[in-house]
Design a protein around this nucleic acid. Sequence first.
DNA 1: TCTGGGGTCCTAGGACCC
DNA 2: TCTGGGGTCCTAGGACCC
Length: 437
Amino acid sequence: MASSTKMFALVDCNNFYVSCERAFQPALRQVPVVVLSNNDGCVISRSAEAKALGLKMGEPLFQARSLIEQHQVHVFSSNYALYGDMSHRVMSYLASQAPEMEIYSIDEAFLSLHGMGLLQPSLEGYAQQLRAQVLQRTHIPTCVGVAPTKTLAKLANRVAKKDARLDGVCHLDTDARRLWALEQVAVEDVWGVGRQYATKLHALGITTAAALARCSEAMARKHLGGVVGARLVRELQGSPCHRLAPSEDGTLKRQSIACTRTFGKPLTDFEDVMSAVAAFASRAAEKLRRQESAANVLTVFLSQNRFGPTPPPHTRSAQVTLALATSSTPELVRVARALLGRLWQPGLRYVKAGVVLDGFEVGEQKQLSLFTPDDSERAERLMQKLDALNARFGKNSVQVATALGAAGKQPGVWKGQQQCRTPAYTTDWNQLWTISC
DNA sequence: TCTGGGGTCCTAGGACCC
DNA sequence: TCTGGGGTCCTAGGACCC
């Protein structure tokens, strides 16, 4: 592996949601902190101190409660307005520091370091500079893995997080370092090895990333989902099979758009569930219009409690393919209502629902209507006005009546609790961070 | 009592066609 | 009795990711 080889860096924010909360409350440093999922259901981000106490990722709050109270762990509801904005700040800086970037998730980005070896005295120093600058600008700590493939960059990042001697950067620039790093990582922690594959690999006696990297292609194909497994092993061996995916600059078009939620409490009334489904369809339609697509396929699903006594299946879904692709909120809500009607069984307690849009047509590919061009143009103009109003006056200033629920009832009966949410410090004029002197 | 949400890619197999 | 072969398209479902 010469230094002129293409290299990838994976920059990963440490305990991102917790770090966002800490950025605005310095008193939270050094103490155990967790952030909860929607509805305050599960633990989804933990500080190092919280991990050390034995709090687990994805653990339900009611199970974690005794540990939390015993050690006075600070608990926060998730605050996506804040996290999204902080993510944007981190990503904007990173984008300015590399020729190409892929935003992989809210808290991770791959950078292409093609040619950087010539500009930088050492990639190690470059990576350290990235960490220092992100920390200074956003107060978010990060780790960086640098390697010749994306899978190895992920692995290097994991090693950098685990081994304090590395000071947050792991650079796999030689074969000896690659082999050393592979020995440090359990096979179930390799990017692309989930629960099913991990079980299978352990049964085959393959327990480390190093052992997986020594597998034959035939073996990988047979046990790890065909071509997916073959690529995984090759990447661990140092041959790149994945490039950066398009994602930056906000032009990425999703192939499917979903809006789904667990309700705050089980619902038994059709109109209550319908108000939720209408809100989900509206939100999905907004996302659809933002990427300038129209959907051909709409799916509604409805779930009962999968932890309860009801035998499976806990989820039923209904789908329709539209004669004409649309992104109109009222149209999608109307279709969603019909689908919900098909699914609805009175007397059942529903805990969750969702709307999924699929089968997109994009821009000029949109099918021309043979029938009522006036109507669809009018609908499009109406939606443009709606989006403009909501952009100006705030989310949901204008919405379809169905989403508000039945007349005379409290709107949003399906919504859950967010008992411990911090303010949207950075995105709402009414919730700005205040410093008292 | 209480258990998140939103995506991607790949494969197998059926329908259909010549 | 014997019942082709190869290609494409589509969908459902399984695996993975954060």
